[in-house]
Simulated assay, not measured.
Amino acid sequence: MATIAPGTRLTRTAASLPPVSFFAVSAIFHYLGPSLAVLLFARIAAPGVLWLRIAAAAVVFAIWRRPWRLAGRLDRRQLVTLLALGGVLAGMNALFYLAVARLPLATVGAIEFLGTVVLAALGARTRRNAAALALCVGGVAVLTAIQAGASPLGLVFAFGNCAGFMLYVMLGHRVANTRVSDVFGGIDQLGAAMLIAAVAVTPAGLGAALPAFTHPAWLAWGIGVGVCSSVIPYVTDQLAMARLSRATFALMLALLPAVAVVIGAVVLHQIPSVRELAGIALVIAGIAIHQADTT
């Protein structure tokens, strides 16, 4: 396993599960975290919520993985990759929050998915995979429609987040399949990148986050956003990326819009229409016929 040191319970458990199983956890928290963040915007400005999210995640990774142990063990290429990933995590999440503060979450998610379509298309070298990609894209198109009258600035932020998400998939896949000194894996490097991201967002976000320190409930809420948005899904991403090709991982992210519809029906009582059910069916069909490449 490329993500953590061999012999641990997490390694053995993860190795016994199919890679797709990690997406069930990642997909749920991928939307649970942002939904909590959007509700928190009414009390704390978006930059403050961003800081709470990344800072909370950085603390969790610091306690769990002690990523500073990587210091002095990274070669130049690995160091550049971690610095780049940390910058991408900071920029991508900032653009995401700025976008969802102006646009519906479904619209931002639809734009975000465009980047993964590009990555999947680059790796779809067989007719079967091309057909799977076409089905997934068709399903996503049915499920999510970009509003023509949306905020222009919000769209700029959303497309910036799309570019950042593409970089996250590429850099995250590289980290997941790189070991440092044969001891530290992808999750350790992810923890180091999150510390870098926390430093990067502090100048812009700490001031906006200060009100949370006088309201324990808000602070706990912000910590919950960090765990749900930047710990659980990113760790499960690493577990999946270590066993899937970048193109396969990008394609399977097509499940996210379908999961959003299901969560909306169960949690928010937003019963899907026939059109939405058709979109879910197309996405599931695409995932079912896709031929995974685990190289």
Score class of each variant (00 low, 15 high):
T8Q: 04
T8C: 06
L10H: 04
A15Y: 05
S16K: 11
F22W: 07
F23V: 11
A24V: 15
A24P: 06
I28P: 00
H30C: 01
L36T: 10
L36F: 12
A37R: 09
R43N: 14
W51A: 05
W51G: 04
R53Q: 14
A57V: 12
A62Y: 11
W64F: 13
W64E: 05
R65N: 09
R66F: 10
R69E: 09
L70F: 09
L70S: 05
R73W: 00
L74Q: 13
L74G: 07
L79V: 08
T81A: 14
L95W: 01
F96A: 01
Y97A: 02
Y97H: 03
A99V: 02
A99F: 10
V100D: 06
A101H: 14
L105Y: 15
L105A: 14
I111H: 08
E112T: 07
F113C: 05
L114W: 08
G115E: 08
T116N: 12
V117T: 15
A121Q: 08
R128G: 09
L143F: 12
T144L: 15
Q147N: 14
A148K: 13
S151Y: 12
P152Y: 05
L153F: 10
G154E: 11
L155M: 15
F157L: 05
A163H: 03
A163P: 02
M166Y: 00
L167G: 03
G172R: 07
S181P: 01
D182C: 11
D182L: 13
F184M: 10
F184G: 01
G186P: 06
G186L: 08
D188H: 05
D188I: 02
Q189P: 04
L190Y: 01
G191Q: 08
A193D: 04
L195T: 08
L195E: 07
A197C: 13
A198I: 10
A200N: 04
G205L: 12
G205S: 14
L206Q: 10
A208N: 08
L210A: 12
P211H: 10
F213I: 06
L219R: 04
A220C: 12
I223V: 15
G224D: 04
V225S: 01
V225D: 01
V227D: 11
V227N: 11
S229K: 03
S229P: 03
S229W: 00
V231M: 04
P233K: 05
V235D: 03
M241T: 04
M241S: 09
A247F: 10
T248K: 01
F249C: 05
A250D: 03
A250Y: 06
L251Q: 10
L253K: 03
L256R: 03
P257T: 06
A258K: 02
A260P: 01
A260H: 07
G264I: 10
V267R: 09
H269K: 14
H269T: 13
H269G: 07
S273F: 08
A278H: 00
I280V: 15
I280L: 11
V283N: 10
A292T: 13
